[in-house]
């Protein structure tokens, strides 16, 4: 356990040791605000809720989470510190968990910093804060899924740029798979059962309920399973690279 927290603390500290983390946070907050107020219909709805804000999150994460995840293993491979880390008495899984937790906490910090939107909606009306909290938790869980994909891609390469592009591509596909336009397009080519299964795999499908503040057990299972699957894949990838 102490090894995991040691790795997590180091990674979190290394985020804030460069200006990159602050740049990320500013971009995230500005985009979150802009998308909610301009692209979303926050005012026109005349409803005291944050649904337009949370509906934008999958698309925000698509660009920003790959950037958070990309250095985690790629930078260790590039600088050779991976040899140092993986010859210390901790398992690959522990190192992986430590890194994942650090990135996940970092995203949590970004989410917490969106609190002005929450204050705004409370100032303008009387929203259901329980729903908002549930949406925040759901959104954080979804970010975890994006992160797990990113950290696995980071383990596959020693180039941060390649890790970023791979992660963004995979996440984009997972988002697209659930869009109604995409599903309609494939309607005649693929059997409805397969199409249904495909849409279940998509992040979009599970993020819609979250935006409405519904933390469905199935959605939670989906995101937890996604996180575990990609982290496991990352560990297997790292061990494979050492045995190859």
């Amino acid at each position: 356990m102490s090894a995991i927290t040691a790795v997590a603390r180091r990674e979190l500290g290394s985020y804030f040791s460069t200006p990159l983390a602050y740049v990320f946070l500013v971009i995230f907050l500005v985009l979150a605000g802009l998308l909610t107020f301009y692209a979303g219909d926050f005012y026109d709805r005349n409803l005291a809720d944050l649904q337009p804000f949370f509906a934008m999150h999958p698309w925000l994460y698509l660009v920003l989470v790959p950037a958070v995840a990309m250095p985690l293993w790629a930078e260790e491979s590039r600088s050779g510190t991976i040899e140092l880390l993986l010859t210390m008495p901790l398992s690959t899984t522990q190192a992986m968990l430590g890194k994942f937790l650090a990135a996940w906490v970092f995203v949590a910090i970004a989410l917490v910093l969106t609190f002005p939107i929450w204050i705004t909606v409370n100032y303008l009306g009387v929203p259901d804060n329980g729903v908002i909290l549930a949406s925040y938790l759901g959104s954080w869980l979804m970010a975890g899924a994006f992160l797990a994909i990113g950290i696995c891609m980071s383990a596959a390469t020693s180039s941060q740029i390649i890790a970023f592009l791979l992660t963004a591509s995979v996440c984009f596909l997972l988002l697209l798979a659930g869009q109604s336009q995409v599903l309609d397009f494939f309607q005649d080519a693929v059997s409805p059962r397969l199409l249904g299964a495909l849409s279940y795999l998509s992040i979009t499908r599970h993020s819609e309920a979250i935006a409405r503040g519904v933390l469905d057990f199935r959605d939670v299972i989906y995101f937890v399973a996604t996180i575990l699957a990609w982290l496991t894949a990352g560990v297997i990838l790292l061990d494979y690279r050492r045995a190859r």
Partner: peptide, 17 residues
């Protein structure tokens, strides 16, 4: 690994720390 102290080639370390 506990019994071993190891200096990898090129003495890698985390530059930002």
């Amino acid at each position: 690994r506990k019994a071993l102290g190891y200096l990898p080639e090129g003495a890698p370390s985390y530059g930002e720390m």
